[in-house]
């Protein structure tokens, strides 16, 4: 692929708004946003311009809300609501906040992991016990 990809780690969450504003003024399109875990939770903001893709990564502090970027990219509200509901990340000042009703999910924040879970490898699936045919005498 001729596309160039970069992931840039921001030193602080506070830097986010400034960097995203710069991206907007430089003509970048917000391509997507998502949350994921390494040793802890992080958010990725992907921007695209022509054949370039640049991703910003931030590590939100627990209990400290991340500022919404809907003031800069209004259409980010869908991504932010999704991250908020699936991962339980606090995002402040979303222009259209669904208050937890974006997805119809049975369990709150189903994608969130407890801190000790974050760096764990997914467990092997438990094997189902083999079903064996009952013996002749049992059948009768």
């Amino acid at each position: 692929m001729s596309e160039t990809q970069k992931v840039r780690d921001l030193s602080s969450v506070a830097e986010l708004t400034l960097v995203v504003t710069e991206k907007k003024s430089e003509g970048w399109r917000l391509c997507q946003m998502h949350a994921a875990y390494s040793d802890r939770l992080f958010l990725i903001y992907s921007f695209v311009r022509d054949q370039e893709m640049e991703n910003l990564r931030i590590y939100p502090e627990e209990g400290v809300p991340v500022e919404s970027i809907t003031g800069i990219y209004p259409y980010a509200f869908l991504y932010e609501n999704e991250i908020k509901e699936l991962f339980g990340v606090q995002i402040a000042n979303i222009s259209l906040d669904f208050q937890g009703t974006f997805y119809k999910i049975a369990k709150p924040t189903p994608f969130a992991k407890a801190p000790e879970e974050a760096d764990e490898i997914a467990p092997e699936k438990p094997k189902r016990p083999m079903k064996t045919a009952p013996k002749k005498e049992e059948r009768s």
């Binding site: 391509c31 997507q32 998502h34 994921a36 875990y37 390494s38 990725i44 992907s46 490898i121 997914a122």
Partner: peptide
Amino acid sequence: VYYIRANGTKFLERMRMR
């Protein structure tokens, strides 16, 4: 857009699709 994050095991840590 497909994002994958892998950790060297047979299970991926994250797959994101926009």
